[in-house]
Amino acid sequence: MKPAHFEYFRAATIGEAVDKLGGDPEARLLAGGQSLIPAMNFRVARPSQLIDINGLEELKPLVARLPENILEVGALVRHQQIATSPLVQRYLPFMATVALSIGHWAIRSRGSVGGSLCHADPAAEWPAFMVAAGAEMVVAGPQKYRRIPADTFCSGFMETALGPGEMLVKIEIPLAQGGWGFWEVARRPGDFALAGAVCRRHHSRTTVTWFGADLSGPGTVTVESEGGAGHGTHFWEDAASRVLAVDDDYMLQILGYCADQACRQAQSDEGRDYDNR
């Protein structure tokens, strides 16, 4: 028996989950368990209560709301669902690429998008992706729902903007135009990345969002320039050292390399994007 004692509670509604969570500062929500249970196995985490949200259908939608140009992703949608969903392939295929870089198959089939965002590991892919996508988090609290933009959601090292008793319900991702690119460096496939970059390109605007590299959370830089994405590795290394306050040479090289690779991909993706229209 590895985890320490806790009370187990299956939430039947979001309201019930939020009530329980608000009533006990040591209680934790249990989603896919792919971050929380390893921590409990080592007794690094010793929650007094686990509130199992796996039965909450309201947390499972994966739908395109086309009039608004929004992909709605429920907090409990699993990484592997994103990787294999025809809907994602149709409207935001880039998201499937990102999903496939998370852990291994068995991890992805349990781990949830919401769990990853709330766990807020600085080396995780989803927080950076959501910042790059300009997503909004829809959060349920003891009194009301509120919305939190992705770029303020991850507020520090494994910290989020969630207040006491608040839970993530869904994420709304705008289906915007432009190209996407993604690159990461990990020691072995399936490991957390040392560092990585998500790039978005639309006309003359290129935005790079980095993760990993001992950052406390996603870090972004936007560059306006005409012509190709060919800023090159050194350009992005400089940008990373200025904007992210990273001074380790090896990390800067990885950050520069990832950004450059991601930008090249985004450039050709943007080209493809326009061919299709």
Binding site: Y8, L30, G33, I37, L50, D52, W105, A106, S109, R110
Partner: peptide, 13 residues
């Protein structure tokens, strides 16, 4: 039918 880590699941799940 999908692979999962049984060490990262509680039996109650």
């Amino acid at each position: 039918g999908a692979p999962a880590r049984s060490c990262l699941m509680l039996a109650v799940m």
